[in-house]
Write a protein that binds this DNA or RNA. Structure first.
Lengths: 232, 232
DNA sequence: GAATTAAGTAAATCATACTCACTAAGACCG
DNA sequence: CGGTCTTAGTGAGTATGATTTACTTAATTC
């Protein structure tokens, strides 16, 4: 009530606990304003400390962002390994990967958006741990495709890197309206559609060609019948 | 030679000419340092004017960037319409779109990289002319797919938006090493591979199912033969 | 050749990430 | 209990770079 000018007691917390508070505040404010517009000062006051204190825990604003995203990626990677266990067949495994990826996006659209729009444009991204994590993450799909080619389930000559890019790039574009808060996504439907597209393609099966093969075969059968009934 | 302190004569140019100089300088320096690290002051001095003069032509740094990218997009859009003229069939048209898009990227990797990494993360991107141009650009593909579905060439139920996202998102990821200067791209090969993937999918055709259909048909033929030779 | 337009400038202003030099809480130890 | 050490925390800067302001002057028009 009184203007009591005595300084508010400084509250000290153990390192891990304070970092948790900072990261919560950062996540909230990065989501609210976007990375660039989010102010370190606001994150600090939200976490109950001064601006300068942030730099006791993170070397800079980018490092704080990367810390959030690395945690997210590590969880996603664990999910992949866990959910792929026991799933047989390239197509089934591809579907699980797509579904899991969409689920991760659905659960943390804020982090996903930060990753898509902020991280990769930063200088030296390709030298960061986050990039390395992302590589390991997409490598899971690449390995599945390679195994599928080796087993004959997938066309020989399929570029596993192209499949990776089409799936993750396609998802990135596809979920954009959701990330912008303009729509919801139906994970089951989207994963089915994408998996079908990648596995079967969009062209109707070439009925004409099938017919030609069929007729050629019938012709040969007819010839043999002629041999049996007509000739000696 | 002498330290002649008299102010260098101010060179005045017509608006269009000066803007051209500014845009050349901006493109060069955005490419060299990236959007954020490129300095307005350096662009200005490179264009032969003071920092403040930039703001006589562009409302801010972002507006300058968008001006470069809008020109690029308008050229790409014209290319689409021109090169699609006379091409028949959904698959052929899709292939032309992919090829042209890759060609545009190959020709202006600097602008492409700016678009991918800087533009879409900016606030209010979805209210910009550039966003509108990008929509019109991708709509060309969407229309081709819809027409292909209507004509029966593409599977009914195909999501044209998914095809759009898979193609443009896939390309975005696929060309990334090239945009980072780490590799070259083979437009012909990449467009073939991507078009094949999207049209046919990656799974080997289901031979078992084809055989079943074939045998069923042969069975019916055999029945008819039986009717002719055996029964009356 | 006066009036108007438009190209250009120098010198602020402002915002904000990050640094510096310091304070003091609290754990541990003898 | 008192001294010491580690480390959480701070207030007051600094640096940088986009943008604004108020002004100057070259070119154009009538």
């Amino acid at each position: 009530m009184s203007p009591s000018p005595e300084k508010r007691a400084v509250v000290r917390l153990p390192r891990a606990e304070r970092m948790h508070q900072i990261e919560s505040a950062a996540r909230k404010l990065f989501h609210k304003h976007g990375y660039t517009a989010a102010r370190i000062s606001e994150i600090a006051s939200d976490a109950g400390i001064s601006e300068a204190a942030i730099y006791k825990f993170y070397s800079n604003k980018r490092d704080l962002l990367h810390t959030l995203l690395k945690d997210w990626y590590m969880g996603m990677l664990d999910d992949f390994y866990e959910k792929l266990e026991g799933v047989e067949g390239a197509r089934n495994r591809i579907k699980v990967i797509i579904w899991q990826h969409l689920k991760s996006i659905r659960e943390c659209p804020d982090l996903c958006r930060l990753f898509y729009s902020e991280v990769r444009s930063m200088p030296d991204y390709y030298e960061t741990e986050l990039y390395e994590l992302n590589r390991r993450y997409t490598l899971v799909l690449v390995d599945v495709v390679k195994t599928g080619i080796a087993s004959g389930e997938l066309r020989p000559g399929t570029s596993s890197a192209l499949v990776r890019d089409v799936i993750f790039g396609g998802i990135e574009h596809r979920v954009n309206p959701f990330l912008m808060g303009r729509s919801d996504i139906d994970i089951d439907e989207m994963s089915s559609q994408l998996c079908d597209l990648v596995c079967q393609g969009i062209c109707t099966p070439d009925a004409g060609q099938d017919m030609n093969r069929l007729m050629a075969r019938l012709e040969r059968v007819a010839d043999r019948l002629d041999d049996k009934t007509g000739g000696g």
